[in-house]
Design a protein around this nucleic acid. Sequence first.
DNA 1: CGCCAGGGCTAGC
DNA 2: GCTAGCCATGGC
Length: 294
Amino acid sequence: MLKMDYTCIEQDKQTVIVHGIRNFDLTHIFECGQCFRWNRFKNGYIGIAFGKVIYVYLKDGKLFIDNCTLYEFNDIWKEYFDLERGYSQIKESLSLDKVLKKAVKFGHGIRILRQDEWECLVSFIISANNAIPRIKKSIDYICRYFGRPIKYKDLMFYTFPTVEDLAYSDVSDIKECKCGYRSDYIKRSAEMVLSGEVDLYKLKYLDYRDAREQLLKLPGVGPKVADCVLLYSMGKFTAFPTDVWVGRVMKQFYVDDDMSLKKIHDYAIDKFGELSGFAQQYLFYYARELKIGK
DNA sequence: CGCCAGGGCTAGC
DNA sequence: GCTAGCCATGGC
């Protein structure tokens, strides 16, 4: 079993080149619903995370990360892209299940990103009862309004605002970012994180249950949003975000049509165990791309 | 026009 | 513990 999904790296001017990359497809990674700030650019994607803009593309079986130093690769992107995890074994285990075998084949290059906790929290508060294009727009507005500008290739990008930026903001300004009734949740959650009432950046050291319980104290955070934050920013792979799409695909292949989302969630975690989060991600991408159950 | 979108909050049981 | 109605906003 391979521990890593790359072999070595080299630097060429402002680009880090990652050799021996496997189980890695940029479209799968960025279009499977786990992140909202990456956009197609030339042969790859351009985006911003942890205050840095990068342009990533695959060529000749190598991953090119432009606008990146060796230090930044090791400090940020190696973990962000979860490159030290071997996905082959995960995919093999999940593929013992007939349905997941198809889903894994369909989204073979999916990797679960390790995003910033705060950005992830706000993003998925916005996601509640919302449509993905609108979620992306609202997050973009928030970054333009409250974030810090960064220039790259004569293009302007904006960092995600800090906890303080939003805790001290005016709710009406958040509303101007088209966040609707979620604006107040964002402001109040920011205040609770800033005060330490919920110690957001320590939650990754707790187990899944305890970290989830803490997240559920935040306004705008229910079971589904909490699981997204746990899975996409804290490496809690027992999380199984159960939204309408996952509900549809589960009802199509696994459970009765009238089962509640909460029961489906519990059923899935019992079935997939430590691999629940990976299973969810393959199933979500499969279901949404193929519009299963709709 | 009504319905839906990566749900959560609240009231009522 | 569970469910029904409500919620901003825009695309269809």
